[in-house]
Nucleic acid binder design. Structure first.
Length: 251
DNA sequence: AGCACA
């Protein structure tokens, strides 16, 4: 695949509103260089994909390498170079030619209808019973899980994705906030471990654990970055039984 | 799975 200043990203979570998705993508990819635009659409043929248009091909290459397989809204991103030059880029270098409007064929309409009818309804929020209580987790499990997570090899194709987020929010406060409220911390987790885990996400400031309580607060520079960390680590399995529960802190 | 440009 030839290098291109535009990246093609797929396997994106299409349950996420496209505008939110574009903002979140910008948060992560902008760390690698200037972004001209992000194109993402929600139609049947185009959902779950996005084009990240960088100012520089080098930035595209760096982000491709380091974000390949990055767990994003619970799905590992698959990233490649775009097959063609983006219109904005072609317009800038004077090579843009008007593309003929495509005709939507009757057959395509039929297919689209069939596909949406076959699409399963969104799963109900899971209140699944916790896994059978096995032997008490050794203290090292939490550490190991975190190390596995932060030592995540960017070149692997199948990234270890956090367990599906339990949508059983104890805290109904959905108001975005640059501070995250973390629940379900196993007793053996330490502030150092927590910061290792949360530091992977851009904008990380600090973790504040609350003595005697299995909760913590994690600060980011802004609420988008906090949102990124929340999506990335939601349901993270600290032990096979204990999964992190993340919400925005109350303002 | 699907490479667009509203």
């Amino acid at each position: 695949m030839a290098a291109n200043q535009t990246l093609y990203v797929n396997n994106l979570n299409d349950k996420i509103n496209v505008e939110t998705m574009k903002k979140s993508l910008k948060e992560v990819f902008a760390a690698f260089g200037g972004i001209i635009d992000i194109v993402a659409m929600k139609s049947l043929k185009r959902r779950g994909q996005a084009w990240i248009i960088f100012k520089e091909t080098s930035a595209a290459t760096n982000s491709l390498k380091s974000l390949q397989g990055f767990p994003f809204y619970n799905k590992p991103m698959r990233i490649g170079y775009s097959r063609s030059k983006s219109d904005v880029v072609a317009k800038a270098d004077g090579t843009y030619v008007e593309r003929p409007k495509k005709i939507v064929k009757r057959e395509d309409l039929r297919k689209a209808k069939a596909a949406s009818a076959a699409a399963p309804a969104a799963p109900a929020p899971s209140f699944a019973a916790p896994p059978a209580a096995g032997p008490a987790a050794a203290p090292s499990i939490v550490q190991k899980n975190i190390q596995d997570r932060i030592g995540w090899n960017p070149n692997q194709t199948a990234a270890p994705v956090a367990a599906a987020a339990p949508k059983t929010m104890g805290n109904v406060n959905a108001e975005p906030n640059k501070t995250l409220f973390v629940e379900n911390l196993p007793v053996e987790s330490t502030e150092t471990m927590m910061s290792m885990l949360f530091r992977q996400y851009p904008g990380f400031q600090e973790v504040r654990t609350i003595p005697g309580r299995n909760v913590a607060f994690v600060d980011y520079q802004n609420e988008y970055q906090a949102g990124m960390a929340m999506q990335g680590l939601q349901g993270f399995a600290m032990t096979p039984e204990v999964k992190l529960l993340l919400t925005y802190a109350k303002k």
